[in-house]
Amino acid sequence: MKIPEPLTRLFNSVPLKIIKDENTISKFDNPIPLSDSVPLVLGVYNTFQYNELILPTDPISLATYLRLIQRNNLQLSSSSTGLTKIPFRGSPYNSLPILIGDSIESIEKIQQNISKHFEKEEYFINDFLDTKLYDLWITCLLVEDIDNETYYRIFGVKDFEVYDLKSEIPKWNNYKVRFPTLNLKKFYEIQLEEFKDYVELDNLKLASFIIIINEFLPFTKIAKLIPTEVIEKSYEILNQTN
């Protein structure tokens, strides 16, 4: 059986090391399959430790990971179960997360598969947040003064790789295609005003975003808009997922 070209590119680019805990489930063995193959592994930029948990360091990957855990009726463990860190250049899309099974699925495909299981109201809320939060995340990275050490902590990149990553960020979520002539600073202010209207929504995706901002970007304008009680609620949502 021939290995698909995207997988060949991925495995040739970096030796994958999947960290497993032999005492826990170490794959997304899904009773409601998101893909036709198991095991499934989520490829992410980097990970961080929260209490005994190992979690992705960017909000898109964190929300995706937690939703996969939920959908597969798994428990978050003390190891990076179902996670592997890979360079963003190792992805066929030059962005992460990706879902690795017998093929490689982009974040767009992952979101489509997960959203099939949503009720109508939840579907529209998540679709709204997929766009709003992803765009806000991109604008934040482009506008805020973020040092290289923070980029390393979030994305696992350093030195010249930071420049390469920054050149890819405007391409995420078709951002540059949809907003080719934006004044980014003005757009950021508009996004921040909108953020005030939905920051208190009770939602896993929003909680993931707030946790990452709190963990890695507490100096940003976004962080200053998040009430303390919302931060606390976001961590409660995380803990409930476990």
Rank of each mutant, 00 (worst) to 15 (best):
I237Y: 12
N73Y: 11
W172Y: 15
L66M: 13
S79K: 14
L182D: 03
I86A: 02
V230R: 13
E229I: 03
T81W: 07
E229G: 02
E105M: 14
I211G: 00
P59R: 06
Q112H: 13
F88D: 04
E105V: 05
K2Y: 14
I107T: 10
Y235E: 07
L55K: 07
L96K: 08
K186E: 14
K205I: 02
I138Y: 09
V44A: 01
Y123G: 02
P180T: 08
I146W: 06
D58E: 15
I210K: 06
K27H: 10
P97S: 01
S78I: 00
E149T: 15
N203T: 09
S26G: 01
Y45D: 09
N113T: 03
G101R: 11
I18P: 03
L204G: 05
I107F: 11
I60Y: 11
P92Q: 02
N126T: 03
D58K: 06
V44F: 08
N72D: 15
P87D: 10
K171Q: 15
K205M: 09
P87V: 06
N242H: 07
Y134R: 10
Q111L: 05
S106L: 01
E122Q: 13
D202N: 13
Q191V: 02
T150C: 05
I169A: 04
A207M: 00
D202M: 01
I169Q: 03
T84D: 00
L96F: 13
N72R: 07
F128E: 05
F195K: 01
S234N: 06
L206C: 00
N94E: 12
G82L: 07
M1Q: 14
S80H: 09
T220I: 00
G82W: 14
K205E: 11
D36P: 09
D29C: 06
I212W: 08
T24Y: 15
K221R: 14
L34Q: 12
Y163D: 13
V199W: 05
L192G: 05
V14M: 05
P97N: 01
S80G: 13
I146F: 11
K109T: 15
E161P: 02
K158T: 12
L16Q: 02
L10V: 07
K17M: 00
Q240G: 07
I107Q: 06
K166R: 14
K176Y: 12
E108H: 14
Q70G: 10
Y134I: 01
P87W: 15
Y45I: 01
L76I: 11
L83N: 07
I125N: 06
E200C: 09
N239M: 11
T181M: 03
Y50K: 12
T131R: 11
I226W: 12
C140V: 03
P31Y: 10
E215K: 14
V157E: 11
V38C: 10
V44T: 07
S35Y: 15
D29R: 12
D197E: 10
S103Q: 15
A223Q: 01
N72G: 11
I154A: 04
P180D: 10
Q240A: 02
V14E: 15
L142E: 13
V162H: 06
G101P: 08
S103A: 13
N30A: 15
Y152T: 01
L40F: 12
I154D: 09
D102V: 00
F124W: 12
